[in-house]
Lab assay of single mutants.
Amino acid sequence: GPIITTQVTIPKDLAGSIIGKGGQRIKQIRHESGASIKIDEPLEGSEDRIITITGTQDQIQNAQYLLQNSVKQY
């Protein structure tokens, strides 16, 4: 399918649970989903961080599912 980009906003407090120790968790999510995932640095004074996910519809759905699971375990 076509490559698309979607953005998800997360509270910055949850960023740690998604990134994992030394970036292990986010690497695993990238690997498992096949999507490209970029977590922006939090904006000055903002409570949120923006996650940019790029890939096919399937890859993005996979990545979103894995991201949600990471947050739930936290």
Rank of each mutant, 00 (worst) to 15 (best):
G1T: 10
G1I: 15
G1H: 01
G1K: 08
P2H: 07
P2D: 15
P2A: 13
P2F: 08
I3Y: 04
I3R: 10
I3S: 07
I4W: 00
T5F: 03
T5H: 04
T6V: 01
T6R: 10
Q7Y: 11
Q7W: 01
Q7G: 05
V8D: 15
T9W: 01
T9P: 08
T9D: 08
T9H: 02
I10R: 01
I10H: 01
I10Q: 02
P11R: 08
P11N: 10
K12F: 08
D13Y: 08
D13A: 06
L14D: 15
L14Y: 02
L14V: 12
A15T: 07
A15W: 02
A15N: 03
G16I: 15
G16S: 14
S17R: 10
S17D: 05
S17P: 05
S17L: 09
S17N: 09
I18S: 06
I19V: 06
I19Q: 05
I19D: 04
K21Q: 14
G22R: 14
G22N: 10
G23A: 13
R25Q: 12
R25V: 05
K27E: 10
K27L: 14
I29K: 02
R30I: 09
H31N: 11
H31E: 14
H31M: 14
E32K: 05
E32W: 02
E32L: 03
S33I: 06
S33H: 01
G34R: 07
G34A: 05
G34I: 00
A35T: 04
A35G: 03
S36E: 11
S36T: 14
S36K: 15
I37R: 00
I37A: 02
D40K: 07
D40I: 04
E41P: 12
L43V: 13
L43M: 11
E44N: 15
E44P: 11
E44Y: 03
G45F: 10
S46R: 04
E47L: 07
D48P: 04
R49W: 05
R49C: 12
R49A: 13
I50D: 04
I50G: 10
I50T: 11
T52S: 15
T52C: 15
I53E: 00
I53N: 01
T54L: 03
T54P: 00
T54R: 12
G55N: 00
G55F: 00
G55H: 00
T56D: 11
T56I: 03
T56L: 07
Q57H: 13
Q57G: 09
Q57M: 04
D58H: 08
D58F: 07
Q59E: 13
Q59T: 04
Q59A: 09
I60A: 06
I60S: 03
I60T: 07
Q61V: 11
Q61G: 09
Q61M: 07
N62G: 12
N62I: 05
N62Q: 07
N62Y: 03
A63R: 00
A63V: 04
A63N: 00
A63G: 03
Q64S: 07
Q64H: 02
Y65K: 13
Y65P: 05
Y65F: 11
Y65I: 13
L66I: 07
L66E: 09
L66S: 05
L67Q: 01
L67A: 01
L67K: 00
L67G: 00
L67H: 00
Q68A: 08
Q68N: 15
Q68E: 13
S70N: 13
S70C: 13
S70G: 13
V71W: 05
V71M: 15
V71G: 11
V71N: 13
Q73V: 12
Y74P: 15
Y74W: 05
